[in-house]
Every structure is written in structure tokens, then in C-alpha cells.
Amino acid sequence: MQTASTNICERMGRSQELIESKRGTMIGCHLCNKSICEIFLLLNIPQSTVSGIITKWKQLETTETQAPSGRPHNMTEWGQRMLKRIVRRSPQLSAESIAKDLLTLCDLQISAATVRRELHGMGFHG
């Protein structure tokens, strides 16, 4: 018979995060000199998760989720739809004028090169 806290992998899935209290409990156990093996058996959380949380806490002194590294994407799905709409209404506009239109209409600041790249990816050529 499984209890409510049994098999956290089935309930949690790969994309969800542990709640802050669980992460705090892991760090508390670690500070009380419990081994990783004892912590994962006690909390019924995968050993790799416990190890990762403790390592992150040692390096960054926090268990909070950090922002992803790397350059953010300029064009969102919404921005791409607006770009498509502008081009369908006026197919003769230059990439520079489309970039200006997106800035004034949507407050979306992108370069003309990004406009060209996105349009090419959408199948608009010329």
C-alpha cells in the first residue's frame, strides 16, 4: 500500500520543481549531518535530486531556481503572429520599416536582421 508521500517521481514529473519547504528540509537534514542516502530514504525523493539540491546550496548558498543562462529569444509566438500580420497586409515593406512598426504597435524592439531571419523561417522570401 502506497502512502500520499510515496513515489514522488510519479506525482512530480520531470518538469516540475520541488516546493521550497522540501528543499529547506533537505538542507536542514544535511546541516544535521545526515548523509544523502539517509535524506533520500527519509524524504522519499530521488538521490540525484537530493545531491543536486545540496550541491547547488553549497555553491550558490541558495536553493531557489535560477534564471536560465544564455541570450533570451527576441521573438515570441505572439510577436511572430504580429510580424506575419504586418507582412500580409503590406508585403512590400522593408525589414527596417517592419521593425519600426513592431516597436510602435507592439512595443517589441527587434532589429531588421531579426525581422529578415524570422520571415525567412516562416517561409517568406524576397
Rank of each mutant, 00 (worst) to 15 (best):
Ser111Cys: 02
Gly121Thr: 08
Ser69Asp: 07
Glu38Pro: 02
Gln66Lys: 12
Ser21Ala: 13
Gln16Cys: 12
Met26Ala: 14
Pro72His: 09
Ser51Ile: 02
Arg116Phe: 00
Gly13Trp: 11
Ala112Trp: 00
Ile54Lys: 03
Ile86Pro: 03
Pro68Met: 09
Lys34Phe: 15
Ser97Cys: 06
His30Ile: 05
Ile110Phe: 04
Thr104Arg: 12
Phe40Leu: 03
Gly126Phe: 06
Ile86Ser: 03
Cys37Met: 10
Leu102Val: 02
Val50Glu: 02
Ile36Leu: 10
Ser94Tyr: 01
Ala99Lys: 00
Arg81Trp: 05
Glu118Cys: 05
Leu60Pro: 02
Glu64Thr: 12
Gln59Tyr: 06
Gln59Met: 06
Glu61Leu: 11
Gly123Thr: 06
Trp78Glu: 14
Met122Glu: 06
Gln47Leu: 12
Ser5Tyr: 13
Trp78His: 09
Val87Pro: 02
Cys37Glu: 15
Phe124Asp: 02
Met75Ser: 02
Glu61Asn: 15
Ser15Gln: 14
Cys106Trp: 01
Gln92Ala: 07
Glu61His: 14
Glu118Val: 10
Leu18Pro: 03
Glu17Pro: 05
Leu41Ser: 08
Asn44Asp: 15
Ser90Gly: 01
Ala4Tyr: 12
Lys22Ala: 13
Glu118Thr: 11
Ser5Trp: 10
Ile53Arg: 05
Asn7Val: 04
Arg88His: 05
Leu102Thr: 01
Thr104Asn: 10
Met1His: 13
Thr65Cys: 10
Thr65Gly: 04
Ser94Asn: 03
Gly28Glu: 15
Gln66Leu: 11
Asn74Val: 11
Leu60Glu: 15
Gly126Asn: 01
Gly79Pro: 03
Leu60Arg: 10
Thr114Ala: 09
Leu103Val: 02
Gly123Ser: 06
Thr3Arg: 13
Leu119Glu: 00
Cys9Gly: 04
Ser48Phe: 08
Gln16Glu: 15
Gly70His: 10
Cys9Pro: 01
Leu18Thr: 07
Thr63Cys: 14
Ala112Lys: 08
Ala4Arg: 11
Gly13Asn: 11
Ser35Gly: 09
Thr3Leu: 13
Ile54Phe: 06
Arg85Asp: 12
Gly121Gln: 10
Pro68Leu: 13
Asn74Pro: 04
Glu77Trp: 10
Cys37Ser: 14
His125Thr: 13
Thr104Pro: 00
Cys106Leu: 04
Gln92Cys: 06
Gly13Val: 08
Leu31Ala: 13
Ala95Val: 00
Leu93Thr: 04
Ala99Asp: 01
Cys9Glu: 15
Met75Thr: 07
Glu10Thr: 08
Ala113Lys: 08
Pro91Glu: 07
Thr104Asp: 08
Thr62Leu: 06
His120Pro: 00
Leu108Val: 09
Leu42Asp: 11
